[in-house]
Design a protein around this nucleic acid. Structure first.
Lengths: 213, 213
DNA sequence: CCTTATAGATAGTGATACTACCTATAGCGG
DNA sequence: CCGCTATAGGTAGTATCACTATCTATAAGG
């Protein structure tokens, strides 16, 4: 197919597709002459993935490029999740040494109990340290004391995730599903948690409004 | 305290504090003369909250303003979570009627089983519909078939969340903790899920690299 | 042949989150 | 009371990001 059809199939404007080509998010089409190229279903699929990562995942163009770069890499199965996570941004903040030590103590207790590996300095651990320290700095250290319940839920979800993607069998499909499941999964879990909050609130306080304080 | 000290205590530049004042994120200080004002610990605290919502929560200035507007509202306890969620952005995408029906069918089955309330048209439901339809559109409908496990984890987390904030007793503290727990919690759970993925991957594939395909 | 489509290059746009500067006034030590 | 720094409030400038528009030369297709 040519550019106009690619645009129609994917729902992405021609000018935007050209932009993604320039930025290296979308591989160039097969050249048929110096100023003509042909695209195929893989391009449509890639465009839909790009839009999903941008619109739902909230990734930047640069992060999408990093994530996509991992899709074609040769690696072991064990690293598949690492590739899926490579390039995914996790927010971090600066914290004092004292606060960091406080947070790491909690994370290490968690790791011991659940057989997780806490590697200091990695983006994931930095993100966790940042959130825990911010809870404390905002005067809500009690929010950091529920880590173990949260970890239990994370283990439950992660087990499901791994079973789901592992069932695909082929490495390429696994990596892609892992990327999609990780990025879109963040949005899915956030929304599910809000629904579950509503039910938990009804369970505790009932459907009838009760004034506090 | 005056502006310079507020800046020092909060770690936010003076020019930025003035910007937040203009944007209505930070309430004005107590006036002592036409061009002088005094600030207090509540301003420091508010600034730290603003930075947390911006830096870790990834909210926009407009979303922070909406969230903060809810902090002072008078409401019933049952609505506290609703306030905490008010103004929080959830990503949505456009979907076909057919895809929407497919997604809603799954969500309603979930709601029946777990006693959740699915109100069509609300931002949360729109977000869930968007993610589920995107999974399918990307050729990974299997990711949408694990909703029930994810919901189980969400119920677990939500129960913990409600117990934690309800223990605070006072409405104002509950609302603030709910906001912080919801917004920063998204980042926390995302990071925990990545750690749990690593363990689940080790459990299934072992520490030794095994080539696939 | 002639209209439309295309690749590639360059420049422009609108939103966002600051950041810098300006003016008139206030605080404050000497 | 002087003079220096600090401040409120206003306006304007900046950097980044994700497009979007325009231009030129060439190609496709009836």
């Amino acid at each position: 197919m040519r550019m106009a059809e690619l645009s129609r199939e994917s729902g992405v404007p021609v000018a935007t597709i050209k932009y993604y080509l320039r930025e290296g998010l979308l591989p160039p089409g097969e050249r048929t002459s110096p100023n003509q190229a042909r695209y195929d279903a893989a391009h449509v699929r890639r465009l839909k993935l790009i839009r999903a990562l941008l619109d739902i995942g909230g990734l930047s163009i640069a992060a999408v490029r990093d994530v996509i770069a991992g899709l074609g890499q040769e690696t072991s199965t064990h690293d598949v999740l690492g590739i899926a996570q490579h390039g995914l941004p996790l927010p971090t903040v600066e914290v004092s040494e004292e606060a960091r030590a406080w947070a790491m103590e909690r994370l290490e207790a968690l790791a011991d109990k659940r057989d997780w590996v806490i590697a200091p300095g990695t983006p994931i651990v930095e993100a966790l340290v940042g959130v825990l320290c911010t809870y404390r700095d905002l005067g809500h250290p009690e929010l950091a004391e529920r880590l173990d319940d949260y970890a239990e839920a994370a283990d439950l979800v992660a087990g499901t995730d791994l079973d789901t993607v592992a069932a695909l069998g082929q490495r390429e499909a696994i990596v892609e599903a892992a990327v999609i499941g990780t990025v879109l999964g963040d949005a899915l879990h956030a929304a599910l948690r809000r629904l579950a909050h509503a039910k938990a609130s009804r369970d505790r306080f009932g459907a009838t409004a009760v004034k506090l304080q």
